[in-house]
């Protein structure tokens, strides 16, 4: 039997969920036996491939680039997992929302800058008006809240999905866990 194709995606998040994933430590080997990591910020693969079985998404949808990316990921993925509070609730990235994009740009690129203050037009993806949870952009199959979800939780979720079972995650994690 061929291995299932696993991918991880990093949108607007602190990478803590990926750190938690790495905390699987030696259990990563168990995962690798059943799945091939075809795309991830942790591997040197530039293009999200077609026919991905499971993709874990960390981070909120905050920029135009995030939006394009997640739509492409959704098209190419069978089971999409919203991993961690930023993906599930917009969490800390969403804390900018009440202030509006203009105020955020001004704070980041003008008020706190001493050298050539100015809002970049290119090379930095444009921010969306609001940072949004991933499921408001594309349909999600599995939700794993937590900031970050523990390595145990992530291992359990991946394990269940690899076995083709929907994970029962409520007892294992929660918002802010």
């Amino acid at each position: 039997m061929s291995k299932l194709k696993l991918a991880t995606v990093w949108l607007d998040g602190c990478s803590g969920c990926h750190m938690s994933l790495l905390d699987l430590d030696e259990r990563l080997l168990a995962v690798a036996e059943k799945a091939e990591l075809v795309y991830s910020p942790l591997v040197d693969q530039k293009i999200f491939p077609n026919g991905v079985d499971i993709a874990l998404v960390e981070g909120a949808v905050s920029s135009e680039e995030d939006l394009d990316k997640i739509q492409m990921v959704r098209e190419r993925t069978k089971t999409l997992v919203s991993l961690g509070d930023c993906a599930v609730t917009a969490n800390v990235p969403g804390m900018r929302n009440p202030f509006g994009v203009r105020a955020v740009y001004a704070r980041a690129y003008r008020e706190n800058v001493t050298l050539e203050p100015g809002i970049p037009n290119d090379s930095v993806p444009r921010l969306l008006p609001c940072s949004r949870p991933v499921h408001e952009a594309v349909p999600i199959d599995v939700y794993v809240p937590g900031c970050p979800p523990s390595a145990d939780t992530i291992f359990y979720v991946i394990g269940e999905l690899l076995e083709g079972r929907p994970p029962e995650i409520c007892a294992k994690t929660r918002f802010g866990a």
Partner: peptide, 19 residues
Amino acid sequence: QTLAQKLEITHVRFPYRYP
């Protein structure tokens, strides 16, 4: 937060208001 977990809420389906 505890209640959300007890009621098995894994995500919020309605749009956040961000007031």
